[in-house]
């Protein structure tokens, strides 16, 4: 079991969360050519090591989180809310 330290709820089992995916993806402009959209939607770096990824606290506060996690050991380095405005609120809370 991976334990994720949700900035709002505290440390919880990963089974409370839904895995999102690679958090490093930058979506191109709406009128960008199809090849750029293809890269953003379908192609992944698929890192073997530390990667930034999103998790949704589905059965908790329902925040989307950005988690830095090793895909080899599952060790978690950092957790923060994806949305910068929400990050301010969670910081005040703690």
């Amino acid at each position: 079991m991976i334990r994720i330290k949700c900035p709002y709820c505290g440390e919880r089992d990963h089974s409370e969360f839904t895995y999102g995916g690679d958090a490093s993806i930058k979506y191109p402009a709406l009128d960008a050519p199809a090849s750029e959209w293809t890269k953003a939607i379908f192609f992944r770096e698929n890192i073997r090591g530390m990667q930034k990824e999103t998790w949704h606290h589905t059965n908790g506060c329902r925040l989307w989180l950005e988690v830095e996690r090793s895909t080899i050991t599952h060790e978690i380095k950092s957790v923060k809310a994806c949305h910068p405005q929400i990050e301010k609120i969670t910081k005040n809370k703690s």
């Binding site: 991976i2 990963h14 839904t18 895995y19 995916g21 690679d22 698929n46 073997r48 990667q51 990824e53 895909t71 080899i72 050991t73 599952h74």
Partner: peptide, 8 residues
């Protein structure tokens, strides 16, 4: 699947 990306 285990639902999250992993090489472990």
């Amino acid at each position: 699947l285990d639902w999250y990306k992993s090489y472990a």
